[in-house]
């Protein structure tokens, strides 16, 4: 890779939505979810984006995935502009997005088949089984997704994403629908998988602890609309990290305080040295009801 050119470059991306009917008195009125987000991610890095609901972090993830198009700017992955979804990016969904008509194993196998259309059946099966076992799913091969717990379903979702060996893994609040106790163990499995594969990961979450446990860098977004990237914090806690060890780590305590302070204070303007006028506060309050996202959870601390 050339020096100075990052692996995944979110290049000054803005997203503007047309207002829905009934929300606006004037026609053709639009509102900007976020603007000028510029973030460079090196290969093999785990970067997490945190922000309140409505800051557009899931929209940004959808743009990287290719589900959605940026209004201005663009996302460049490994030197190529992203235009549509593809096998070089895999998404782990908050809703799991497992196909209920396929067994847990087949859900992963379909992805492996798609990624390697020339492989024979045995090879596809062996490859699928490898990732299935890596996510501690052994024994659940023939189960319907409907009969698996939330934790197990997301393990299948992670196995499916990792098995394709994408250039970038996109995690969209992957553990938001999983109970707190299970969440911890899946997070540790994700760390193990990531350590083994050294995939480039972009995750969005509400959960500060999750972000610190998993990430190399944490990107903080100001509140939407017209959200901006306020700050990118390096997480210098040495790996391997465990939740147990983190509790007493002074770095963890101060990081957590720093992020929470940013979020609780309202994330209203940039804390970085870059001079940017703060967004109009009146407009912020008025448009809070026009959130494009469905997530409603607050900051899980």
């Amino acid at each position: 890779m050339e020096p100075g050119v990052s692996f995944l470059h979110i290049d000054h991306v803005s997203k503007t939505f047309p207002m829905l009917h009934g929300e606006s008195k004037r026609k053709n009125e639009t509102f900007t979810v976020f603007k000028n987000v510029d973030l460079q991610i090196e290969a093999g890095q785990f970067v997490t984006m945190i922000g309140h609901s409505g800051c557009g972090k899931s929209t940004l993830l959808n743009i990287i995935a290719g589900f959605d198009q940026p209004t201005t700017g663009g996302v460049i992955l490994d030197g190529k502009l992203i235009e549509r979804p593809g096998l070089d990016r895999m998404v782990v969904f908050q809703s799991f997005a497992l196909m209920p008509w396929l067994s847990a194993f087949s859900n992963v196998r379909v992805a492996v088949q798609a990624a390697h259309p020339l492989w024979d059946k045995q090879k596809v099966r062996a490859w699928t089984q490898k990732y299935f076992d890596m996510m501690n799913l052994h024994g659940a091969e023939k189960k319907w997704p409907a009969f698996l717990s939330g934790g197990m379903r997301q393990r299948v979702g992670l196995a499916r994403a990792f098995a394709v060996e994408p250039k970038v893994l996109l995690l969209d609040e992957p553990f938001a629908q999983i109970d707190a106790l299970t969440r911890g163990s899946i997070q540790e499995e994700l760390v193990r998988m990531w350590t083994a594969t050294r995939n480039t990961v972009f995750m969005v979450t509400h959960d500060v602890d999750e972000a610190i446990l998993l990430s190399d860098r944490i990107a903080l977004m100001t509140n939407g609309p017209e959200a901006e990237l306020a700050e990118v914090i390096d997480v210098n806690i040495p790996r391997p990290r465990t939740r147990e060890a983190l509790i007493d780590s002074p770095e963890y305590v101060s990081l957590r305080a720093q992020i929470l302070r940013f979020l609780v204070k309202g994330a209203k303007h940039r804390t970085s040295t870059v001079e940017v006028p703060p967004p109009d506060e009146a407009a912020t309050d008025e448009a809070m009801s026009h959130e494009p996202e469905e997530d409603d959870a607050g900051v899980a601390a």
Binding site: F67, R84, G86, L87, M90
Partner: peptide, 9 residues
């Protein structure tokens, strides 16, 4: 589901 299908090209 459609998004997964799109990702898998």
């Amino acid at each position: 589901y459609m998004q997964v299908a799109a990702l898998l090209e």
